[in-house]
Design a protein around this nucleic acid. Sequence first.
DNA 1: TATATTTACATTGTGTACAATATAATTGTA
DNA 2: TACAATTATATTGTACACAATGTAAATATA
Lengths: 147, 147
Amino acid sequence: MGYDNLKLKNQLCFPLYACSKEVVRKYKKHLGKIGLTYTQYIAMMALWEKSPLSVTELGNCLYLDSGTVTPLLKRMEADGFIKRTRNDEDERTVMVDITQKGLDLREQAAQIPPKVGGCLNLSHDETITLYKLLYKVLNNLEMSEDE
Amino acid sequence: MGYDNLKLKNQLCFPLYACSKEVVRKYKKHLGKIGLTYTQYIAMMALWEKSPLSVTELGNCLYLDSGTVTPLLKRMEADGFIKRTRNDEDERTVMVDITQKGLDLREQAAQIPPKVGGCLNLSHDETITLYKLLYKVLNNLEMSEDE
DNA sequence: TATATTTACATTGTGTACAATATAATTGTA
DNA sequence: TACAATTATATTGTACACAATGTAAATATA
């Protein structure tokens, strides 16, 4: 009985990948109504809390690189949610600020997490356990950058 | 203290999304050497185990829709890993088979999961717990298709 | 202070990912 | 058996996602 570790059922990565995709898909249905994609939504969450942020800082918060963040921010600026300004002190860095339109979105966005959370149907303990395990993996992966 | 449920730290979906992305990134580094992307890799896993599969069946296995699967399979066919054949009995369905080149890949692919698994650094119990919680969420999301 | 290095973003190219739509084959039904 | 409805796949358009590369500004060093 060979190749057991190549069965989808025996993978940890596959349910992780599929689960992430399905949760994001669920979010998208709600986010579409307020004009955000999922990636734009997590960018707004970072900015609602810590604006202004540089492009690099935002990318680090979200585990995204500049090839993703730059076009993402351009679309968000075109939609009027944020503003990008090149820093006066260091002309290399671009600062990202929220506009009033971006701030106004917060009220409606706050309704969404409980709706999606309800679909997951986990107990409080299960939620905490899953949360901790995910961050544990995330941290462990950062440790082993080299391999 | 408003909008606590909009902080990245308080989200479950965000570590899920980030974790999935980082694990896939880790896989990619190994998969590149054998000429596969991550999505192609999980498609091969499904096919190694259950080939032949129709496009729809494969899409269901992987939680992917035809807009993703069709171009994916076309690239894999161009690379010589699989073969697509329109079914004789039902001309609507396309059957996907593995080629010899695709079969030969299995040996090298089998080396990869333990390498990535090592980076996750979870105990046996933690791995089982995470696995079960991910499938629980995945199943619960399928139940609540409507909302 | 000239030059090498580093840093911060941006660009390019390839490959997903999915909603919405289109198309052709099959099946159900009057 | 015509024709409507369904099914299976493909196409289109938009938006990530990242590796590799490019570029300009800032910093370090001889």
